[in-house]
Design a protein around this nucleic acid. Structure first.
Length: 196
DNA sequence: TCGAAGATTGTCT
DNA sequence: GACAATCTTCGAG
């Protein structure tokens, strides 16, 4: 890219919209995490929407509990949860307070800080495998429970505006990795590389 | 290259 | 006590 205008974080208003629009809109955006002196960045290429208490696959379907409480919080904050006894996953909370919906970030492409990612995920055999899964990207980015409820527009953990992905490069499919409400078409991913 | 199964712990019934 | 928005390894073809 020739001249990069300074990347701005997506404002809270970006997240205070229909969750499906947010999931689609996050494709192509930049996930960034600063820890100590190191910065890692990635391009979001896969997301999933979780719509609220009426969505059986959404954690909020169980109601408001200590675990799901962040989903009820303000839009643009992080919901980081622990699964399978060993993995962390990160979501962006969407819609107004009291509407417990969110977008799971499932996959990103490494953009910066690849050395740091490799240190955190020495088992990855290729750069692509560093963060092509929800738990992998949390490991590569150093995301864990400490980022739960963090504001994504000003934290050390942020999502920055970047080149949007055009419709012809986006595919919408069913959600994966879940047992309930599997058939709902709430997963978006980038099918073609925008770079050449 | 693909499918099956184990790892491991917080949360809710 | 069951199960989970996953990743990795291992064995078969």
């Amino acid at each position: 890219m020739a001249h990069t205008r300074r990347a701005l974080p997506l404002p809270p208003a970006f997240y205070d919209r229909d969750t499906e629009l947010v999931a689609r809109g996050l494709l192509g955006m930049t996930l960034e995490h600063r820890v100590g002196g190191s910065v890692v960045r990635g391009r979001i290429v896969e997301t999933e929407a979780y719509l609220g208490e009426h969505d059986p696959a959404c954690h909020a379907a169980a109601g408001r509990t200590a675990r799901t409480d962040p989903l009820y919080g303000p839009p643009g904050t992080a919901y980081v949860y622990f699964v399978y006894g060993m993995h962390w996953c990160v979501n962006a909370v969407t819609r107004a307070e009291g509407l417990p919906s969110a977008v799971l970030i499932r996959s990103v492409e490494p953009v910066a800080g690849i050395e740091t990612m490799r240190e955190r995920r020495p088992r990855a055999r290729s750069d692509q495998q560093l963060c092509d899964g929800p738990a992998k990207l949390c490991a590569a980015f150093g995301i864990d429970g400490r980022q739960n409820r963090a504001a994504l527009w000003k934290g050390p953990l942020r999502i920055l505006e970047a080149e949007p992905i055009s419709d012809q490069d986006v595919r919408r499919t069913r959600r994966i990795g879940i047992s309930r409400a599997r058939s709902w078409p709430l997963r978006w991913n980038v099918v073609r590389r925008a770079t050449r």
